[in-house]
């Protein structure tokens, strides 16, 4: 018997529920925190971003009109599937960040908990952010929240799993769809997360994950007229300024990168959800 050959995994993009190679045919080598070769990942191009936006736009009507209860269930299901791959994620985090196995396990658990936490918000955010407004006239005046639309997300380079989950979950739980540019440095957990999403009842196109250079892809997303908002959490200062300028053209909602380093383990608060919500107010005559 000859020695068994290792099965080398080919990492790809996640667009519209499928795993295509980059349109450009490019890939780049991913290394561990110690500099060892881990795998080759697809290097997404502007055309992949374009396709991903088209997929996200296509998925938006269905996802945004699903009941909040249903969206919450699906996010909970994602958490379940993520939990089932705990060992794989932990191993990837050890490679990517050089953390101990114990710490990596804690980070995966935190990511699972984060998903469950956001899943619970799906049918409560309306009660918190909506209102029955008192008005001086014979009207019911009701404010309700609606998702903004297609959101481009520049994922944080640090925190390849917990950070990633913490930027995706608040965007989609309220009914937005998103195009995520994964951490260029450590993309492997994002691709494994894509495999989790693909097998967890989440409709194709709600989350699209591109690996590659944020500096290359993000400006195209920021300038794209069919993207409604952009989360610049993972962009460095120069890129964030460029993207914000480009985003002005179609009045995108912009979530600026934080000034300080984010502690992803801390209580996330509601800000990431409310940044990508629109308020609709209806005046309804009171029948007298």
């Amino acid at each position: 018997m000859s020695e068994r050959l290792a099965v080398r995994k080919t990492y790809k993009l996640f667009i519209g529920g499928a795993f295509p190679r980059s349109e450009s045919g490019r890939s780049y080598a991913v290394t561990s925190s110690k500099g060892d070769f881990l795998a080759n990942a697809a290097k997404g191009s502007r055309k992949d971003a374009r396709d991903a936006v088209a997929a996200a736009r296509k998925a938006f009507p269905g996802w945004s009109s699903a009941t909040p209860y249903n969206r919450g269930q699906i996010l909970y299901r994602v958490a379940e599937m993520l939990e089932g791959r705990r060992a794989q994620f932990a191993a990837e985090l050890v490679d990517a960040d050089g953390v101990t196995a114990k710490k990596a396990g804690e980070l995966v658990d935190a990511a699972v908990d984060r998903l469950v936490w956001y899943a619970g918000w799906s049918d409560k955010i309306g009660a918190i952010r909506g209102a029955a407004n008192p008005v001086a006239g014979p009207y019911f005046n009701l404010s309700t929240v609606e998702p903004t639309g297609v959101v481009a997300v520049i994922a944080p380079p640090m925190g390849p799993l917990l950070g990633l989950v913490s930027v995706i979950a608040p965007v989609i739980v309220t009914g937005n769809t998103c195009v995520v540019v994964a951490s260029e440095r450590a993309p492997l957990p994002s691709i494994t997360l894509a495999e989790v999403l693909a097998t967890s009842d989440l409709p194709g196109g709600v989350v699209n994950i591109l690996t590659g250079s944020a500096g290359e892809i993000a400006p195209w997303l920021a300038g794209h007229m069919d993207v409604n908002a952009i989360d610049l959490t993972g962009a460095d200062a120069d890129l964030a300024v460029r993207c914000e300028e480009l985003a002005a053209e179609n009045l995108k909602r912009v979530l600026r990168p934080p000034l300080d380093r984010i502690d992803w383990l801390a209580d996330p608060g509601m800000d990431r959800m409310t940044a990508f919500l629109e308020t609709k107010t209806v005046w309804h005559p009171i029948g007298v």
């Binding site: 374009r50 936006v53 195209w220 300038g223 794209h224 007229m225 069919d226 993207v227 480009l246 053209e249 179609n250």
Partner: peptide, 9 residues
């Protein structure tokens, strides 16, 4: 314009 267009416009 060098930017991707959207059907809203």
């Amino acid at each position: 314009t060098g930017r991707y267009a959207g059907p809203d416009y």
